[in-house]
Design a protein around this nucleic acid. Structure first.
Lengths: 124, 124
DNA sequence: ACAGGTTCTTCACATCCTCGTCACGACCCG
DNA sequence: CGGGTCGTGACGAGGATGTGAAGAACCTGT
């Protein structure tokens, strides 16, 4: 892959979610999320395109670094893993949205009510 | 003629409605609308001809890519689906107008009052 | 090299969504 | 009023996505 060594710490914020690719970690309301390599990369690439629909093939290319074979379900499986961990960390939010026939989109959406946890107190 | 230049990221705006065919999505006051392939294409073709009456046969040809068989109600059904989703996202607006015997026309018309719609995520 | 634990990949099955179509009733216009 | 047009809800088939699990690959410390 491109030898573009990212110098300054990139920070991606999506609602109460904070992604720090260069630190190899993400935070939910300041709490550190334990993510594997693949999971973090997938989340990062989605985060870099937050609020936009990213096709599976593109996601696979970005995260796995090669072309996706037809029928490969890896992206779906890792989306699932991310959803579980995000749900676990922030029960009242939904982040990864499916766009049937197109791909996935990352965006913070509160589950309607009880966003009493808005006292994020991130360094913001 | 269809000299539609394939400029990157075409944006169609109709009142508070924003259609981004290349992103595979549309927004209502910035909020993403979840549309299926057909729905988005229909909305797009209507949007490209905003304020003009588009005959069913033409709409069908544009969206389905083939000639419409007599008695086919697909266009009507999908107009209905779009209306429901648009109504859900922007309750005080009407977009798709029927022209009896001719076809449909897309135009933003506020229902007169209180378009201060804070359509907060219902979470329903 | 080995054991123990973790991550990655692949599968099979379950579930959900889309799409085209139908049927019936309301509507519009002459 | 009469006949065609449009609105609307429902249905089934087929395909796309969700989900749990098993085995392979990998990593780490001894």
């Amino acid at each position: 892959m491109a030898a573009t060594a990212r110098s300054s710490s990139e920070t991606i914020e999506v609602g109460p979610l904070q992604i720090l690719p260069d630190e190899h970690l993400a935070r939910a309301n300041g709490r550190v999320l334990v993510l594997s390599m693949r999971e973090l990369r997938l989340l990062t690439e989605l985060g870099r395109r937050a609020d936009r629909i990213v096709p599976r093939e593109e996601l696979f290319r970005l995260v796995w670094g090669r072309e996706m074979r037809a029928g490969d379900r890896s992206v779906d499986v890792y989306v699932r893993k991310l959803r579980v961990k995000l749900e676990d960390a922030l029960p009242n939010w939904r982040f990864i949205h499916t766009h049937f026939g197109f791909g996935y989109r990352l965006a913070a959406e509160s589950n309607g009510r009880s966003q009493l946890d808005h006292t994020v107190a991130t360094g913001e």
